[in-house]
Design a protein around this nucleic acid. Sequence first.
DNA 1: AGTGCGGCCTGTCCGC
DNA 2: TGCGGACAGGCCGCAC
Length: 276
Amino acid sequence: MPELPEVETSRRGIEPYVIGHKIQTVIVRQHQLRWKIDRQLPQILSGQTFHTVARRGKYLLLHTSSGTLIIHLGMSGSLRILAKDHVAQKHDHVDIIFANDKCLRFTDPRRFGAVLWTEHDPITHPLLKKLGIEPLEQEFSGDYLYRLARNRNIAVKLFIMNHQIVVGVGNIYANEALFDAKISPKLSAKKITLAQYQQLAKSIKKILQAAIRQGGTTLRNFLSGEGKPGYFIQHLKVYGRGGLACTKCKTKLKEIRLGQRSTVYCIQCQSQSRAD
DNA sequence: AGTGCGGCCTGTCCGC
DNA sequence: TGCGGACAGGCCGCAC
């Protein structure tokens, strides 16, 4: 499922094909995504040109001179660059066709994704304005996490998955980063020491950067803009490995539910702060 | 304000 | 082999 590394991989993959090419036609086959696609979208976009492909958290921002197309991949969404006459399949919901006969295609079987148009600064959009900081920016640090964790009683895994705190850390990488930082996912956010948060911030950056280098994690159907799968799955140490042996100490990895999400950790390696 | 949970979706897998 | 049902999950929006 697309988390920050997958979205960044998509961004890099589509960027060279999207920037500077005039939009000729837009085809919307399915309007009902997470939010309804604006019926006017084809008219709005036709004739315009994207000049930037940016990312904020897991949102892709395709800027034109009059507004921004906001794309979220949800759980199962993907973007690909294809020839414009490439036959559309069942879950191919949106095609943006350029004057050079290339097509940017949005595919999303579960339709948790979104394609939205705004004429305002997207940073002020209701979906984006409350987002926390980017994990790969310098301001994201152990001090930052420690400061925001004061009086927060939720499990640290849910804390780092909260997009008002830090964006882009989804279930896979939250599990992986906590394993890397040797912190139990169940620990209350306020009980974690500054030193632990410094390690955790480091681990989050390290894991996300490594995943981006590998082109993301392909679980079922994630492909980059150029149609390549991601290879980070080979590096996952806990996610999807419940019941299997810890790669470090061979203890059987424990799988629990935290905030309705599957959580996998090693009770041996991630237990230094006894509250387990 | 912080926390918890329902709901939106469909492909996959499991048991009968 | 076919079918129902559980499950997966990002994240908004509501309830407490």
